[in-house]
Structure formats: C-alpha cells, structure tokens
C-alpha cells in the first residue's frame, strides 16, 4: 500500500496576501460609511486621492526597480495603506496634503525598505505623522460631525481642490477642533472635564459622531477576529492597557482625566487597535511579544493624549512601538521544542 509522503506543515492556511487585504478592506466599510455620514464627502475625496496617489507611486517605484507591477499592485496592500491614511486625515485637508502624506508613506516608509513584508514602520502612520508635524494647522481642523455632512459635495470639492469656499465665512462654522483637542485646551484653561463635555460636540460617552464611527470600526475588527485575519492579542492588549490606565487616573481625579470610555471611543482608538496596530508586517510576531507591543501602544497613547503636545497619540504610539518590535521579538522568542536552556 503506497503511503503519501508530504512534508510538514500538514495543515496549511489557504489564505493569501490579496485575500487578507480584501477582508481588511471589507471590514473597514461600516466604519468608513459612518465617517462619510458624519464628516461628509471629504472622506470620499480623501479616499479617492489617497488611493490614486498610492497606486501611482507604487507603480513608479516598481518600474524603477524593474519589478512586475501587476503582481505587486494586485496584492491590495498599497490600497489598504491609502485607505487607512485617508480615514485618519481630517475630511477638509487640501488635496496636496493627502498626496504628500500618501506618497511619503508608500515611497519612503514602504518601497525604500523593499516593499511589502520588509517595512519596519507602518506606512500609513508614517504618512500621517509627517503630515501632522509638517502641517499642524490643516491637520487639527475637523469638520463638525453632522448627519449628512456639514458641507455639500460641490463645496467640499471646491475647498479641497482650490482651498477656497463660495462663502469663506462658512469654513469657521463647519470646522472645529476634535473633542479630544477641546478637552486638552480646556484643561489648560483650568476647566474640568465635566464643564468641557457639556459642549455641543459631545455625545453620550465621547464626541458626537465619533462614538458611532469607533463602534462600527470595532464591529469590523470583531469580524476580522472571527475570520482569523488578525490575532486577538494585539487589540485586546491595546484596548485593555488604554482602558486600565485611563480608568485609574479617572478614579484619581475625574475633573482632570477623561473617563476610560471616552478614550476607547474617541479619535482613532478602534481603527488603530484592530486595523493599524495589527498590521502583520510591522507588529510583533510572538505570543508574549504581541501582548507587550499592544500594551506599549495603549500606554503610550494614554501618555501622549494626556500630557503630550499632540491631541491624539495613536500614530506616534504605533510607530514608537514599531521601532521596538525587533527588540521585543528578539527577547520573546519561544523556546524551540527539544532544546534545553544552556544552564
């Protein structure tokens, strides 16, 4: 009787890179629709510009390196980077800012390191941080969340492509700082959290609109978990570390530190925990490493949000922990089966 000889591993995972990326894109849809609903057509314009820039710069770089363009473009990884970046940018940024951020992300943070699989930093977050440091004024003005969006399609196009509006007075009325930014400024002016969050921008636990956006990203992330696209360690570690520290400080002084739920459902928390921090290339790959990496992101986010100069620390926290990933992996290597410790 002939035996079939196959070498290990016998149980193979059938998923491929394009397949995973397609699932990530699918899971982003509910959150992205909520963004579109609250922040208006600017989100869509950002996504279109960022995707076009990402595909163009990826094509140029692959051509320069004489690599097969079609094979690398159809793995959707550039598209995922572009869409994550577009969702992180405010929906009123001028078109050139999106182009600069996206091309920096693809060319410098990804292609110079050899493309997908080699980049040590998350490209989308590098693009976001470059934009935040270089153009802080444009990056901190968000449209006021309003069902259906505060601006019409024509106004949005005019604003993002030419930088002007039919009536310049509208701009001040439809844009404002994010709730998180307002809390930071308010605390600086010696007001308490309770006083600040009576403002029109605040909802049940966090910013109006932001709550639902984060909730839908959470649902998308849970679907990714169920489909086994991402591991549970990183999102759980990010969210629990952020929750734990903000809870402790909130108990210590509720007037100075916002509630843990505010932190979980504000800014880019859920987008980061499920979609950005879990990037398989730039995240840690060992069991304990993932937990340390995730907790690092949660703690650094909390520190930068509360005491740092920038309103949301998510992007900085992610690239700071990306930086530590090779070291974390080195020290958390699981023991090889059959080997003994040297002592």
């Amino acid at each position: 009787m002939p035996f079939i000889n196959t070498s290990s591993p016998h149980q193979q995972n059938q998923s491929s890179v394009p397949d995973l990326m397609r699932k990530v894109l699918l899971a982003l849809i509910p959150g992205a629709l909520a963004c579109l609903y609250y922040f208006g057509f600017g989100v869509l314009v950002n996504i279109v510009i960022a995707s076009a820039t990402a595909l163009a710069s990826e094509t140029i770089m692959l051509n320069l390196r004489h690599y097969p363009v079609r094979r690398y473009l159809t793995d959707y990884s550039a598209l995922v980077t572009a869409i994550l970046l577009a969702l992180a940018l405010p929906a009123t940024v001028p078109w050139w800012l999106t182009v600069i951020a996206t091309s920096f992300a693809i060319v410098i943070a990804k292609q110079l390191y050899g493309g997908l699989g080699y980049n040590p930093f998350n490209p989308a977050m590098i693009g976001y941080v470059v934009a935040l440091i270089a153009f802080p004024q444009q990056m901190t003005q968000w449209p006021v969340p309003q069902p259906g969006g505060a601006l019409g399609l024509l106004d949005v196009l005019l604003l993002q492509l030419t930088g002007t509006l039919s009536d310049p007075a509208i701009l001040d009325a439809v844009t404002s700082a994010t709730p998180m930014d307002q809390i930071k400024t308010g605390i600086g002016l010696n007001r308490t959290i309770g006083e600040i969050s009576t403002g029109a921008l605040f909802g049940t636990v966090a910013g109006r609109g932001w709550e639902l956006v984060n909730l839908l990203f959470l649902l998308g992330g849970l679907w990714l978990l169920w489909k086994k696209v991402i591991n549970w360690q990183i999102p759980v570690a990010v969210l629990s570390a952020l929750f734990f520290w903000s809870w402790m400080f909130n108990l210590y002084d509720g007037d100075l530190y916002s509630s843990p739920f505010f932190h979980l459902f504000s800014g880019g928390t859920m987008l980061c925990a499920f979609f950005i921090a879990t990037d398989p290339v730039t995240a840690s790959t060992t069991h304990w490493g993932r937990l340390i990496y995730g907790m690092g992101i949660g703690i650094l986010t909390f520190i930068i949000r509360n005491w740092g100069g920038y309103p949301d620390g998510i992007a900085f926290a992610v690239i700071l922990m990306n930086m530590a990933v090779p070291t974390i992996d080195y020290y958390t290597q699981p023991r090889v089966f059959g080997h003994q410790d040297e002592d």
Binding site: L64, R65, I108, A109, Q111, L112, Y113, G114, G115, Y118, P120, F121, I126, V129, V130, I133, L300, I304, G308, Y310, G313, A315, F316, A317, I319, L320, N322, M323
Partner: peptide, 26 residues
Amino acid sequence: ADVPEAFKGNSIALITAGLMSLAFMG
C-alpha cells in the same frame, strides 16, 4: 530586507534614524 541597491547600508540606516526621530517628536 530587499532594499534597493542605491539605499543599502548606511543610507537606509540614516532614513530609519530619521523616521525614529519623527516618532520621538510625539
């Protein structure tokens, strides 16, 4: 990593250092 020929060695290391410095601005 599969770094482009022109960026191998110290150049990619300096770019990395630059990106690390970017992170520290946080």
